[in-house]
């Protein structure tokens, strides 16, 4: 049998670690990685439930998450390159431009 609770908790921990990465790391690239980790945690949850409920829908969702992740990474890398060209830095504290 599949240890469902364990898988859910693994997925939760992965997601929360990803969230923490996004929240507390100062490097933009680390934030990007945190995002990827969060997406992966979600994928794990989908695939687990696809297996548990015997429904392929969850796997399709994961497939589309891959697509979205690919697009997102491409765009973020373009943005990172742009702002690096602008500031020569990757620290988020240097980009708090949304201040009044």
């Amino acid at each position: 049998m599949i240890p469902l609770n364990f898988l859910l908790i693994v997925s939760l921990i992965l997601f929360m670690v990803g969230t923490l990465t996004v929240l507390i790391r100062r490097n933009i690239l680390m934030i990007l990685m945190g995002l990827e980790l969060m997406l992966n945690a979600a994928s794990l949850l989908f695939i687990t439930y696809a297996r548990v409920l015997g429904n392929l829908m969850g796997q399709f969702f994961t497939l589309f998450i891959f697509v979205v992740a690919a697009v997102e990474v491409g765009l973020i890398i373009a943005i990172v390159l742009n702002i690096f060209g602008l500031k020569k830095s990757l620290l988020t504290s240097n980009f708090s431009l949304m201040r009044r």
């Binding site: 599949i2 898988l7 994928s43 794990l44 695939i47 687990t48 696809a50 297996r51 796997q59 994961t62 497939l63």
Partner: peptide, 11 residues
């Protein structure tokens, strides 16, 4: 690896 164990070899 976990995906493979969860009957999702393609994924």
């Amino acid at each position: 690896g976990m995906y493979a164990l969860l009957s999702a070899p393609f994924m």
